[in-house]
């Protein structure tokens, strides 16, 4: 298997269908509109032929997670802690309010705070789902998990993810 594969950005794809014409394996011809990854050999012909720039070649394996300074992580964690609390506060306001304008605003706050926490995590060592950090995190969740269904899902994830370090 080649180390890269083609992916199609469905938002940009203008159905010029030249990828179908050049693909040696038929991987670009699917019902879902996405490339059939099991057929893609990573040759890049579709990406070069696409007039709308909708297909890009992405790696199967990404470089290792960059090392982050511990103090930077500590400061970002402090922000994550605060955003997570604010998300919960907004959640509480949402659940306890009868006013639909207040609820609407609370909903926007829940979303905004969650998005900020997610982004902070990405910059504190969890950019890649395939990193050792993610692996350690999932393993610690597994250790604490006491429900069978939950355990199964975590185990499945650990198995599926192609850890790179």
């Amino acid at each position: 298997m080649n180390k890269i594969r083609a992916v199609r950005n469905l938002r940009i794809c203008s159905k010029d269908c030249l990828c179908l014409y050049v693909c040696p394996t038929g991987a670009t011809d699917t019902e879902t509109g996405q490339i059939d990854f099991s057929k893609c050999i990573g040759c890049g012909a579709c990406s070069k032929a696409c007039p709308s720039g909708a297909i890009s070649m992405v790696p199967y394996q990404y470089p290792k997670q960059q090392l982050k300074d511990e103090l930077v992580i500590a400061k970002l964690n402090k922000l994550i802690q605060s955003k997570a609390e604010q998300e919960q506060m907004a959640e509480h306001i949402y659940n306890s309010s009868n006013n639909n304008i207040e609820k609407q605003l609370a909903k926007a706050f829940i979303r905004a705070n969650r998005l900020m926490s997610e982004d902070l995590y990405r910059e504190s060592g969890f950019m890649l789902p395939q990193s050792k950090n993610t692996k350690d995190f999932l393993e610690s969740l597994l250790e604490q998990a006491n429900e069978e269904i939950l355990k199964k899902d975590i185990e499945k994830l650990i198995k599926l993810l192609d850890f790179n370090e």
Partner: peptide, 30 residues
């Protein structure tokens, strides 16, 4: 738990970016 949830949804988005659909769904579930 709130922070674990945020990390899981962050990783779900990370998987989505790499077109790893099944992994993304599992992280969202977590």
């Amino acid at each position: 738990y709130a922070e674990i949830s945020a990390l899981c949804s962050s990783l779900a988005r990370g998987c989505e970016k790499q077109y790893l659909e099944e992994e993304s769904k599992l992280f969202t579930k977590l």
